[in-house]
C-alpha cells in the first residue's frame, strides 16, 4: 500500500514546471488567439466566439473529422488482431527471440518521414516493387491519382509501421504467463482456442488496453507519413485532422481559425484519453 505523503510533490515539481512550460503556456496562447482576429500579436481584434462558430460549420473540419475516425477505426481493426497473431507466433526461446524482437522493432525506429518516403517509392508502378507487381498483375493501381488506392496505401503503411508495437506489447504480456498454466492446460487436453480464450487473453487484457489507447491516439494525430506519401491527396482523400490544422496554421497563417480548430481537436483528445485512463485505473483497482 502506498503511503500518503504530500512531500512527494517536491519530487514531481521539476516535471510539473517543465511540462507546464511547454503545455500550459502554449495552451493559454491558443485560447487567447482563438477569440481574436489576429495577424500578429500587435494587430488584433476581439471577435469572441466567431471562429468557433465558423469552424464548427466548416465542411473541411467535418470531412477530415469523419475521415480521421474511419481511419483510426480501420487501423485498430487491422492492427490489434494482427498484432495478437504475430505475438502468438513469436518463438518462445532460443536465438529466434532476440532476432525477431529486433527485426520487429525495425519499422518503429524509422523516422516518420522516411516511412513515408519508403512507401512513396515502393508503391510507384515504375520504380517500386509493390506498385510494379500490382500493375503487372493487371490491377490498375496508382496511389497518386486514385483515392481508393491512396487510402489503402496509407493504411498498409500504418499497418507496416505500427503493428510491431501491438505485437511487442502482447508478447511481453504473454511472457508473464507462468509455464504451469500451459502444463495444466495440456493435462486437461484443452484446445488451442481454450488456451487462448481462458489463459492468454485474460493476461493480455491490460497490455491490449495500452495498445488500443496508444494506437488510437497516435493514429488520431498522424501527420508526417501521409504528408510525405500522398501530401493529403489526391484531392483531400487522405487529409487527416493534423494536416488540415497544419495547413491552416502554417500554410495560410490563419491564426485565429487554426487556434479554434486546435482547441476543438484537443477537446476530442481529452475526452478519449479520459475514457481510456478511467478504464485503465478501473482495471488496476479491481485486481
Amino acid at each position: 500500500m502506498k503511503t500518503y505523503n504530500n512531500k512527494a510533490w517536491w519530487l514531481v515539481l521539476p516535471v510539473f514546471v517543465l511540462v507546464a512550460f511547454s503545455a500550459i503556456i502554449p495552451m493559454m496562447t491558443v485560447v487567447n488567439y482563438s477569440v481574436q482576429d489576429i495577424f500578429d500579436p500587435s494587430t488584433r481584434y476581439f471577435v469572441g466566439t466567431e471562429w468557433y462558430r465558423e469552424i464548427l460549420a466548416d465542411p473541411r473540419l467535418h470531412d477530415s473529422l469523419v475521415r480521421q475516425f474511419i481511419y483510426s477505426f480501420c487501423v485498430l481493426a487491422i492492427e490489434v488482431p494482427l498484432g495478437i497473431i504475430v505475438a502468438l507466433s513469436m518463438p518462445r526461446r532460443g536465438l529466434g527471440v532476440p532476432v525477431s524482437l529486433i527485426l520487429l522493432s525495425l519499422p518503429l525506429l524509422v523516422p516518420w518521414n522516411v516511412v513515408g518516403t519508403i512507401w512513396q517509392i515502393i508503391g510507384r508502378e515504375d520504380i517500386g516493387l509493390y506498385g510494379w507487381i500490382l500493375n503487372s498483375l493487371g490491377l490498375d493501381y496508382n496511389y497518386a491519382s486514385n483515392p481508393r488506392d491512396a487510402w489503402i496505401t496509407v493504411l498498409v503503411m500504418d499497418v507496416w509501421h505500427w503493428t510491431s508495437l501491438v505485437a511487442l506489447l502482447c508478447y511481453s504480456g504473454l511472457r508473464s504467463i507462468p509455464d504451469v498454466y500451459y502444463q495444466a492446460a495440456r493435462i486437461d487436453r484443452a484446445s488451442h482456442w481454450a488456451v487462448f480464450r481462458f489463459i492468454q487473453l485474460p493476461k493480455l487484457k491490460n497490455v491490449l488496453l495500452i495498445a488500443v489507447m496508444l494506437r488510437f491516439m497516435d493514429s488520431f494525430m498522424i501527420y508526417t507519413e501521409p504528408f510525405v506519401l500522398t501530401g493529403g491527396g489526391p484531392g483531400t482523400a487522405t487529409t487527416f485532422l493534423s494536416q488540415t490544422l497544419t495547413q491552416m496554421a502554417l500554410g495560410q497563417f490563419d491564426l485565429g481559425r487554426a487556434s479554434a480548430f486546435s482547441l476543438i481537436y484537443f477537446l476530442i483528445i481529452l475526452l478519449v484519453t479520459w475514457v481510456f485512463y478511467t478504464a485503465m485505473t478501473h482495471n488496476d483497482n479491481k485486481e
Binding site: 503556456i25 496562447t29 487567447n32 477569440v35 481574436q36 500579436p41 488584433r44 469572441g48
Partner: peptide, 10 residues
C-alpha cells in the same frame, strides 16, 4: 508576454 495576446475575457 505581448506575444501571448491576452484579452480581458480570456
Amino acid at each position: 508576454m505581448g506575444w501571448m495576446a491576452w484579452t480581458l475575457p480570456t
